[in-house]
């Protein structure tokens, strides 16, 4: 596969849409942006002073609008720096590089009905679903869970435009979503989509399993990207090179900083593109792509999220 082409964009608006969430409007430096499919994301490259961060963010503008993209970034307490960079360094006029859109969370076009569960900033991929579902005139429901002291972006606009198809649950006001009640009320042909924290994904999956709802009707996107860890050294056996991986850098970012191109799409341990062969050292697996057998073998690693369990790792690159 060839090197992923980057597109240059400029930030034309920055908006605080929730206490912890900022929205960024991106316009192309030249020409038009490509249309995209609902649920698509782009990888934004942020050239920080210490290191370069690359994070995936869902596109939340109307997929048919190719004049601009919009993304929203939640400030993460345990961030490696990417969200801090977006919140503190990026302003109107800042130029950024983004990847072309790719999609690991597209709607099922054959579904009779769509039920969307959003948790906090997990509302973002669904904002690109909504115009498409409305154009298709297919039934849908949005269940939006948030803490209004931190998140809950767009809830007023969504309530106004979607009326009774939008259900809001503010945990800071003690409102909880009864996932089981929502799911048991759905007709045959319904597909469920979840974007939010791991706990929400698990809650919906567990409920579906208990109720006997088929697993292939459940679709999710975890927005957890790489998390920091202990620093370690990676040796590239094929090149005779050693690299330092800092605590707040992912292994993939460290490889990219050394100009080693690794194909990747999600940077969240989901798509499987960046898999690398391990020739030595223990791996701390943090991805949701490799099978348990593959993880136990210790022979492969997803460098976008996983790290060395010790001080040293040898990759067959």
């Amino acid at each position: 596969m060839s090197v992923i082409d980057q597109m240059s964009v400029v930030v034309t608006a920055v908006k605080q849409v929730a206490p912890m969430i900022k929205e960024f409007t991106l316009e192309p430096l030249e020409g038009q942006l490509t249309p995209f499919s609902p649920g698509a994301h782009v990888v934004v490259t942020m050239a920080g002073t210490e290191s370069t961060y690359r994070n995936a963010y869902s596109l939340m503008s109307d997929p048919q609008d190719n004049s601009q993209y919009r993304i929203a970034v939640r400030l993460q307490e345990t961030s490696r720096g990417g969200s801090v960079y977006m919140h503190q360094q990026v302003e109107v006029g800042t130029q950024l590089k983004i990847s072309p859109p790719s999609n690991l969370f597209a709607p099922q076009w054959m579904a009779k009905k769509h039920v969307l569960f959003a948790g906090g900033v997990g509302i973002t991929p669904f904002l690109s679903y909504l115009p498409a579902l409305q154009r298709q005139q297919v039934p849908f429901e949005l269940h939006y869970m948030y803490r209004s002291q931190q998140t809950g972006a767009y809830r007023i606009e969504l309530t106004e435009s979607l009326a009774d198809r939008c259900h809001c649950y503010d945990a800071d006001q003690g409102n909880r979503c009864d996932v089981s009640a929502v799911m048991s009320a759905q007709p045959l042909g319904t597909h469920f989509y979840i974007c939010g924290p791991e706990s929400l994904i698990e809650a919906v999956q567990t409920t579906a399993d208990e109720m006997g709802i088929p697993p292939s009707a459940i679709h999710w996107e975890a927005f957890a990207g790489a998390k920091p860890g202990q620093p370690f050294v990676v040796e590239l056996s094929g090149r005779g090179v050693e690299l330092d991986v800092a605590a707040d850098s992912s292994l993939l970012e460290a490889l990219e900083a050394a100009d080693i191109k690794i194909p990747n799409l999600c940077r969240a341990g989901v798509c499987g593109q960046c898999v690398c062969d391990v020739a030595g050292g223990e791996v701390e697996h943090r991805d949701s792509y490799l099978s348990d057998t593959e993880k136990q073998s210790g022979r492969v690693i997803m460098p976008c999220v996983s790290r060395a369990a010790g001080e040293r790792l040898v990759l067959d690159i």
């Binding site: 596969m1 060839s2 992923i4 082409d5 490509t34 995209f36 990847s99 072309p100 859109p101 790719s102 194909p263 799409l265 798509c271 499987g272 593109q273």
Partner: peptide, 11 residues
């Protein structure tokens, strides 16, 4: 198949 389902837009 694994390769094809990961082909991104414009590639």
């Amino acid at each position: 198949l694994k390769y094809l389902i990961a082909i991104p837009v414009g590639k």
